[in-house]
């Protein structure tokens, strides 16, 4: 839509993308939250989130995302990673720090590396009983590592 010279994305594809991307993200977050005792977890949630972003890259194009949504310039010289690629790499690093920090926190408390625990919160207003598992921190780290890694690959390979 921004340049309109060579891109011919139909209105149908754009509208479907706007409806489907929030649904994919909600599914991904549900899989992330149930991951410690049901099928799901950080990896598949990260893959689904990356596919949601891939859908917007495919339909709207990398240039549109960078100029209209992130308010960045498009013109970067060859060999220099774009803003999208650099920020995806930052997400990758944050995820690695969360996952490793979750393991080291157990060592600080005197247990072996990556020791996990679970706590049950009872008498809550809506949920009545909520299970808080420390494995969720590691899942969250895996989630950010997968999202960052896949989005870096997509933005670098897609820009070529």
């Amino acid at each position: 839509m921004s340049d309109g010279i060579q891109r011919e994305t139909t209105v149908v594809a754009k509208t479907v993308t706007r409806i489907v991307v929030p649904l994919i993200l909600v599914t991904a977050i549900a899989l992330l939250l149930q991951g410690h005792n049901l099928p799901g977890g950080g990896f598949i949630a990260g893959v689904l989130t990356a596919t949601a972003f891939a859908l917007t890259y495919i339909i709207y194009g990398l240039d549109y995302i960078q100029t209209e949504l992130l308010d960045r310039g498009v013109d970067v010289p060859d060999g220099v990673p774009t803003a999208l690629a650099r920020e995806s790499g930052t997400v990758f690093g944050i995820g690695l720090a969360i996952a490793a920090g979750g393991g080291i926190a157990a060592m600080v408390l005197g247990y072996p590396f990556l020791t996990q625990a679970v706590a049950f919160l009872e008498h809550l207003p809506v949920y009545h009983e909520l299970e808080v598992a420390s494995a969720f921190v590691f899942d969250l780290g895996v989630y950010f590592v997968v999202v960052g890694g896949l989005l870096t690959i997509l933005s670098v390979v897609g820009a070529e």
Partner: peptide, 29 residues
Amino acid sequence: VTVSLVLAIIGFISTIAVARYVTEGDIIE
């Protein structure tokens, strides 16, 4: 049911990607 939901999402996106590849020869611009 969760398996089928994830498979349906990924199948939908792969269909769109392949359709763009067939019509324009380039998936992400």
